[in-house]
Amino acid sequence: MAQVFWTWVAAFLTLAIFSFLYKDNPFYKFAEHIYVGSSAAFWFVYLWYFDIKPKLIDGWRYNTGFEKYILIIPAVLSIFMLMRFIRPLAWLSRWAIAFTVGMAAGLGITAALQGYLVPQIQATFLPLWVSKGSFWHSLGISINNFVLVLGTIVTIFYFYFSKEHKGTLGALSRAGIVFIMVAFGASFGYTVMARISLLIGRVYFLIHDWLHIV
């Protein structure tokens, strides 16, 4: 019985949100406010039960020695962050932000170099002629490699701004734009597919779980 009730609630909220496609209306506003409110409440509960309580409060209660007293630092930094709301003490929040930015930059730079830049550069060192299997198979792989290497080089030229894009540099950077446009097009096509998938999910819910037509 409870499942039937919640299916009807979900169907009503889905239709209320879809009604915005016709025009803004009170049903849409109602569904939108429920969504925002319930998301905020869910986040609050999760932050309490999975961040603050286990990490800070239980950590302070059950840990001993160094593991216990080190918690004073994040606790103080957290309070500093909240000082943003008290104007005379707002400057304290910068300490917390500085800590977060410094840590994120340290982690990010290492990760980007080790996990992205170096492996990606390595992956562009490809042979321009590959002899593997039949001639046509070899030709296919070789063309792929050539396009990849050429695309990487001309795209980098597009982002070279120390010289005006004229002559050879202009031609290379224009070729770079073509590769960038192809990449944007592929991303856009995928994004369209993603949005339509969400619509398909909701329509399936309405006709399968709610109306039992299919």
């Binding site: 990606q120 390595q122 992956a123 990449a183 991303s187 995928y190 994004t191 597919m193 993603a194 998938s197």
Partner: peptide, 26 residues
């Protein structure tokens, strides 16, 4: 993952940093 994020992973696939990619509903 979603079709929005999947295109960004093809470089990882090409560099063999990932061993498979399942993109979007397709």
């Amino acid at each position: 993952g979603t079709a929005v994020v999947a295109p960004d992973w093809y470089p990882y696939l090409q560099s063999r940093q990932i061993v498979g990619l399942i993109g979007g509903l397709r």
